[in-house]
Design a protein around this nucleic acid. Structure first.
Lengths: 319, 319
DNA sequence: CACCGTTACGAGGTACGTAACTATG
DNA sequence: CATAGTTACGTACCTCGTAACGGTG
């Protein structure tokens, strides 16, 4: 029994039971993987994989149980490396943040400069993707943190922590009829009124889009969504060229920088959303990661986060 | 990084930082252990052990952190073997119960025959020791369960579950003055009255002895404890030869088998005690272990026990 | 027949044991 | 000076890669 066998089993499962793929991902030969797994099964006295003749099709029941234990072992092996790095190179290391474009473009710039100053030796990297992908990246150890608004909380094995809340904002061109409303009129804006114009907003998987859909559907309104994009910059660009009105996250509108557009605070129409940070349950986080979390959201103190990670699947109320 | 290195580190710590001892326990050469650990420290980039010249004295701070992670890894590696055995040999395996003499002699005989009938292929073994030793055996994986009344609950890393409650009983020879009391008089027996006679009872570490001491001390009575023993059989023997009156656990007195002695139910004087079963936090238990627990105490269902094990250090109220 | 997993075999490297050496208390 | 840890070194074994083989869809 050795760590290599654990790696092979885990990777084979991740590569959809394709040994050849698994071997390639681990930079080794396919027969080596095959042999190691066979020997491992032999030692345990069980079959881990369901085989149709020679094709590996899936996990057996004991294989499922074994793979779960292996996941826990490999998680701790990863922790071992992190723990020792924590002492060997106190303020050095890497921090990979998996997030949506909105976070990378509008929220992280408020945090990262200060973090960088405090930990100049930490190598930062940002990865973007859909919330589903972000969660996957964290679960597989490819990223340390996932930051997103939607669906993160539902992923098993992921601990999610409330970071900040926000509301949507409507952006229009200065020459648009809605641009001239007085602020009292803006406060009274209804979904019907918005639906009179073509709408440019987020793709289905991002930044509270489901809340937008739900809001309209709740009043049986069928808005004309002429364009979907995953980021507010694209949306603003198309609003600017006259495609329609934009609905974007409040954080994505800056009156100063977006001086070519008018923002209408209509948050109440689409509800309040909580952006959450997700970490893998049971991981060891480097000291600077805790500091990062506290910089991003003061309520996420080391104690709060550690408890959430240990309680494994625990979640903290949005308040 | 490999499992062997983890084993060496763990064993070195357990053997009080004596490499030679650790090597012997693992049936390998001492230089091999030394080299493996040095390489491991090198790979992690930290020193695990505090060295005075060449003598290993203790753990460094990173070493402590690393050793905790290693403990979790090795726990899961053990689980791996158990999980696969669970499927490979469904009703076969071993069950080692670490318990005090009282449990082995009086309580387990009520459970083990039925268990044996249900799982004839499970090899049972009983280990006896002080509660402190029992806890240690379970924590080191030398025993699956610990059963005892005292102090188990306090051991960190051990999950303890309430099994049954009991009270003490006083045993005297038939020719003893107390033997002739009517049951109404027995109900009124006081500590003072008992303290008029020399007492034979348990050793300090066993079966509610502290409760006996506390009861007397609470009324500022200094009983004459003429003999201490770790088991009721010994106590009864000395009561029988006229050394004094005996105070033993209720389960240890059987009117039929102990016909040469008279039992006086004076439980209220020394309080009610809960015998607990301890398992290591986070372990995987074979199916038959869950069955055993439920046979020993019907309230300890699989769900209850599993939850307690997972909540790691969790405890269930005696009710 | 193209793809995938297993078996066979050989070279390189690693693990481990013995022996010698060194430092500590 | 006895005990304990590290270094040195050689052998045995094991890992891993290439090549060949056997089944599956």
């Amino acid at each position: 029994m050795n760590l290599q066998q654990f790696r092979f089993v885990r990777e084979t499962i991740r590569r959809d039971f394709n040994l050849t793929e698994a071997a390639r991902m681990l930079y080794t030969s396919q027969p080596g993987v095959s042999k190691a797994i066979l020997e491992f099964e032999d030692e345990l006295g069980i079959k881990i994989f369901e085989r149709h003749g020679k094709r590996i099709k899936g996990l057996t029941r004991p294989g499922l149980a074994v793979s779960q234990v292996i996941d826990r072992i490999m998680l701790e092996v990863d922790n071992l490396k992190k723990v020792s790095d924590e002492y060997a190179r106190r303020d050095e290391g890497g921090l990979t943040i998996a997030c949506t474009h909105t976070q990378a473009r509008y929220m992280l710039p408020k945090v990262i400069p200060a973090f960088r100053q405090r930990f100049p030796k930490v190598h930062l990297s940002l990865a973007e993707g859909s919330p589903r992908q972000l969660a996957e990246m964290v679960l597989h150890g490819q990223a340390d943190l996932a930051i997103a608004t939607e669906s993160l909380a539902l992923t098993p094995g992921l601990v999610t922590l409330p970071c900040y809340t926000w509301e949507h904002v409507v952006v229009v061109r200065p020459d648009h009829p809605l641009a001239d409303l007085r602020s009292s009129a803006v406060k009274k804006l209804s979904l019907e009124q918005l639906a009179e114009y073509p709408i440019v907003t987020y793709d289905r998987a991002f930044s509270g889009r489901t809340a937008i859909d739900d809001a309209f559907a709740g009043q049986r309104i069928h808005p004309d969504i002429v364009l979907e994009a995953i980021d507010a910059d694209v949306i603003k660009t198309y609003v600017d060229v006259g495609m329609g009105i934009g609905i974007i996250a409040g954080v994505a509108y800056d009156p100063r920088r977006d001086s070519g557009l008018v923002g209408l605070p209509v948050g109440r129409l689409f509800g309040t959303h909580t952006t959450r940070i997700g970490v893998k349950a049971g991981v060891f986080l480097r000291d600077y990661v805790y500091t990062f979390l506290e910089m991003a959201a003061p309520q996420l103190t080391r104690e709060v986060v550690q408890q959430a990670i240990m309680e494994h699947g625990g979640d903290i109320a949005p308040e």
